[in-house]
């Protein structure tokens, strides 16, 4: 039997420390950027304090997720960690053992199979893509997909190197830290399962955004050809979205909420305009959650879902499309109908 799966619960951990865009720009060696907040829609981001890191954010998000879930940690069958940054104990990057194995120990998921994946900002949606494979075949019933991103440290490198508004490190100023987790569960409800479609790596664009650890300073750095990667993502995603909609006899108009990867407000708006031009219609609403948190890398989709769930923006019957863009270039679509999860959240955080 082929089982369907659904999102059972979501958890998030945001650091409490705030770094405003103005504070960030004041640190630039050469004051070459103006109206950055207006263009990106990012006015502040949450950043880790000295006692926080990728691992603590991931563990706290997993615990938050479990607090909303009907499952106990020991009932989880699988844990997939999807962080790009694997900082534990400050800016010390952990390679072995895996984050997922340590998260398993921290939350007490005694029977869970664990592994880590890394797929840039598409990490968590790739985690859902993999969870669905195992659930569909009946191998597992529940999977915790989790990620912790302590990525704001790339700002330090960027601040020292940005000399003009065309700098390849400009996008490093958009990022913020966050942990997010989601429990994916098996469901017998054939109509409301997750529809996962079109996950593709367009590798000819793989050099447009690269990130790596610094050699001689703590933390990492990222270089992005923002305009090129944005243009490629928008144009290449059209046939992939169309296929996802066609396969499920849906039109773009049937989608109540489009949640794209949160990069910058201007990119999201120009993408939406491109889709309107191509499809001749647009989804009900497009989520933009950048203002207070910035681009939180692999966690953006679940942070947006969590935020809107708490703001009671979703209805039980709303159709949501999660659209991922990530360096690689990775494009993927997940469509699902909101379910009873909308009643679990609200004004609690």
């Amino acid at each position: 039997m082929n089982w369907k799966c659904q999102i059972e619960s979501i958890g998030v951990k945001l650091p409490s420390k705030i770094l405003t865009t103005n504070e960030l720009l004041e640190k630039l060696k050469i004051p070459c950027i103006r109206k950055f907040g207006l263009l990106t829609g990012i006015f502040e981001r949450k950043v880790c304090s000295p006692d926080e890191d990728s691992f603590s954010l991931a563990v706290d998000a997993a615990k938050d997720c479990l607090s909303f879930s009907k499952y106990r940690a020991e009932e989880l069958d699988m844990i997939i960690n999807c962080s790009i940054t694997k900082y534990k104990n400050g800016l010390s990057h952990l390679y072995e053992p895996t984050f997922s194995a340590l998260i398993k120990n921290s939350v007490g998921a005694t029977k869970a199979i664990t592994f880590d994946i890394s797929n840039a900002c598409a990490g968590m949606l790739t985690g859902v893509y993999l969870a669905e494979k195992f659930i569909r075949q009946g191998i597992i019933k529940t999977c915790l997909v989790v990620s912790g991103e302590y990525i704001s440290n790339i700002c330090d490198h960027a601040l020292k190197n940005i000399r003009t508004s065309l700098s390849a490190e400009l996008s490093s100023l958009t990022v913020g830290d966050c942990g997010a987790a989601a429990i994916i569960e098996r469901t017998a409800d054939e109509k409301n399962g997750l529809i996962i479609s079109g996950f593709t790596t367009l590798s000819r664009y793989s050099n447009l955004c690269t990130g790596r650890q610094n050699r001689r300073t703590p933390g990492g750095k990222m270089k992005t050809k923002s305009k090129k990667i944005h243009e490629a993502a928008i144009s290449e995603s059209v046939p992939i979205i169309k296929q996802a909609l066609d396969l499920n006899q849906l039109s773009f108009h049937d989608i109540d909420w489009l949640i794209p990867h949160q990069t910058s407000r201007s990119s999201i708006i120009s993408g939406a305009n491109h889709y309107l031009e191509y499809f001749g219609e647009k989804p009900g609403q497009i989520a933009v959650t950048l203002k207070d948190t910035g681009n939180t890398a692999s966690t953006t989709h679940f942070l947006a879902l969590y935020k809107y769930l708490n703001e009671k923006r979703f209805n039980e019957d709303d159709k949501v499309m999660l659209l991922c863009f990530a360096s690689g270039l990775i494009i993927g679509v997940i469509i699902f109908k909101m379910n009873k999860i909308v009643h679990m959240y609200g004004n609690s955080n």
Partner: peptide, 8 residues
């Protein structure tokens, strides 16, 4: 290298 994925 952290991103993109080495596989890409």
């Amino acid at each position: 290298t952290g991103e993109p994925a080495i596989a890409a």
